[in-house]
C-alpha cells in the first residue's frame, strides 16, 4: 500500500506562447493510504490540473510526485504503471465509453494491464458488482441513462483495482438519486478495499459529510489543508475565495448573527440538529422538547 507524496509541484500550460499560464505552483502534501480526501476550489483554481499529476497524465513543470517513495515520472514504464495504482475518473466520464457492450467497456482497463482472460472477467464482474450494473453487460453503453453510463465509466476505472481512486466531480449533472447511488458505490469500494479516495467537488455539503480531510485550492495554490471542521470553521476565508460553506454551517452562522450561540463544529445536518437541541435545552433549563 502506497503513500502519495507531492513535492513543490508546479505546472505551466503552453509555455513560451501568448497563452502561457501557471496552473498550479508550490503544492506540497502527503496522502496516506486509506484517507478520504475532498478537493475544493473555484473554477480555474488548479484542482483538475493537480489531480492529473497524481497518475502521471500531466508531467510536472517543476517538483515531483512520489508513490511509495519513488518518482512516478522516473521513466516511461513507471508513468504507465502508476495508472493502475492511481485510478482517475474524469468529469463526465460517460464521454469515454466506446465499446459495443458494457462488459467490453469495463474490460478495457484490465485488458490494457495485460491480465489473463479469467482475471479480466473476475475484475469486470467485481467492478460491475460495486456499481450495480451486472445486469447490463450485454447492452450498448450508448443506449443507457445518464446515471447508468456514469456508473459504468466508474466501473471501468475500479476494474483496475486502484489503490487510490481519484474522481473529478463524480456527481455533476446527475439527479439526486443518481448522486446518492454513485456516492454509495464509491464508499462501498473504499470500505471493501481500503483504497484512498480523492474527490474533487463543488458540493460542500457532500464534501463536509463524507471526507476526513479537505484540500482547498485557490489561484493555483494549496491554501488550506485539514479536517472539514477546521476548514469550515473559517467561513470568511472560504467566501473570500468564492466558495460556499455547507448549508448547516451557513444556518449556524445565521443563528449566531441573531444571538444564538451553538457549540462545537457544525458542518453536517446531524451536528446542526444536535447543536440546536443542546442550545434549546440550555435555554429551557434542562427541559427536553417533544
Amino acid at each position: 500500500m502506497a503513500e502519495i507524496q507531492v513535492e513543490d509541484l508546479r505546472h505551466v500550460y503552453s509555455p513560451g506562447t501568448p497563452f502561457e499560464r501557471t496552473a498550479i505552483e508550490a503544492v506540497n502534501l502527503a496522502l496516506p493510504q486509506g484517507q478520504f480526501v475532498g478537493v475544493i476550489g473555484h473554477t480555474g483554481s488548479g484542482k483538475s490540473t493537480f489531480i492529473q499529476h497524481l497518475n502521471a497524465l500531466l508531467l510536472p513543470s517543476g517538483g515531483r510526485v512520489l508513490s511509495a517513495g519513488e518518482d512516478i515520472n522516473r521513466d516511461k514504464k513507471s508513468r504507465r504503471d502508476i495508472k493502475w495504482k492511481v485510478g482517475l475518473v474524469f468529469q463526465y466520464p460517460e464521454y469515454q465509453l466506446f465499446a459495443e457492450t458494457v462488459y467490453e467497456d469495463i474490460a478495457f482497463g484490465p485488458r490494457n494491464m495485460g491480465l489473463s482472460v479469467e482475471q479480466v472477467d473476475e475484475r469486470v464482474r467485481e467492478a460491475a458488482g460495486f456499481v450495480g450494473v451486472s445486469e447490463l453487460f450485454e447492452r450498448s453503453p450508448l443506449e443507457l441513462s445518464g446515471g447508468q453510463k456514469r456508473r459504468i465509466a466508474v466501473a471501468g476505472v475500479i476494474a483496475m483495482r486502484p489503490e487510490v481512486l481519484v474522481l473529478d466531480e463524480p456527481t455533476a449533472g446527475l439527479d439526486p438519486e443518481g448522486c446518492a447511488q454513485i456516492m454509495a458505490n464509491i464508499r462501498a469500494y473504499r470500505e471493501k478495499t481500503g483504497a484512498t479516495v480523492i474527490i474533487v467537488s463543488h458540493d460542500m455539503d457532500g464534501a463536509a459529510a463524507l471526507t476526513e480531510r479537505l484540500l482547498v485550492f485557490d489561484k493555483g495554490r494549496l491554501v488550506m489543508d485539514g479536517p472539514p471542521e477546521e476548514i469550515f470553521s473559517q467561513p470568511g476565508r472560504l467566501t473570500a475565495m468564492g466558495l460556499d460553506v455547507p448549508r448547516p454551517t451557513a444556518i449556524a452562522l445565521a443563528l449566531e448573527a441573531r444571538g444564538v450561540q451553538l457549540q462545537g463544529p457544525v458542518y453536517t445536518h446531524e451536528q446542526l440538529t444536535n447543536a440546536i437541541l443542546r442550545a434549546y435545552r440550555d435555554k429551557e433549563g434542562g427541559r427536553t422538547p417533544c
Partner: peptide, 15 residues
Amino acid sequence: ETDRIISAQRARGAD
C-alpha cells in the same frame, strides 16, 4: 474534447 478523451483512456491504460 479529444484531449480529454485521450486523457481518460490513457488513465485506463490505453497505449
